[in-house]
Amino acid sequence: MFIEISGIKKGFGEGESRVEVLKGIDLELQKGEFCVLLGPSGSGKSTLLNIIGGIDNPDSGFITVNGEKTADMNEKNLTIYRRKHLGYIFQMYNLIPNLNIKENVEVGAYLSDNPLDVDEILNILGLYEHRHKLPNQLSGGQQQRTAIGRAVVKNPDILLCDEPTGALDYNTSKEILKLIEDINKKYGNTVIMVTHNDAIKDMADRVVKLRDGMIRKNYVNENKISAMDLDW
């Protein structure tokens, strides 16, 4: 098993105001699998993604990636883990505002021992002609594509996407989803995508539904469709 999530629990706050966000999550994912984590706000899906990404720690339980337990890693090793294995895509892009588009992608490439060709990625993402622009000169969709480029260029084993289309319109959302789908197919990364858009589940290999910190459904999508065929 490439990713094994076992008994993850996580709560926030103290005493009476404490909220248990994750109440024991068990999940296994294959390498190259496209997994969609669905759920309403407060279901714990982003918290779970952050724990998988090594930027938050569980109260109990563990995660192993390719046989390595993240709980055993100190801060330095967690940094190396993120550096070597993960690509992150957020709802709000989080680009470095003073770097141009190409440089933002290069910031990702720098971290990899075996990065993809930056110009090729820019071409794939349709950003080559905008490569010298600053992020704030681009539309939301173009900025999200840049964030995808930055995540993908280091050819990560795992691509974590936290509501990547949450701030985009319908058409742009579909374009972005198509890009992620293409990247998953072309490079074989394991994709874990958090969304509350129910329609997106149809393009996933695996669908995990969360509610109140627990997995309510976990199934393999037998009727997977292309991102461009999604509708909502």
């Binding site: 930027i55 330095k76 940094t79 993120r82 070597k84 993960l86 989080n94 470095i96 990702g108 971290l111």
Partner: peptide, 13 residues
């Protein structure tokens, strides 16, 4: 701070 946080997430030491 935002960029520093992001570079940390990306895996910069």
């Amino acid at each position: 701070a935002q960029s520093v946080s992001m570079t940390k997430i990306l895996g910069y030491s």
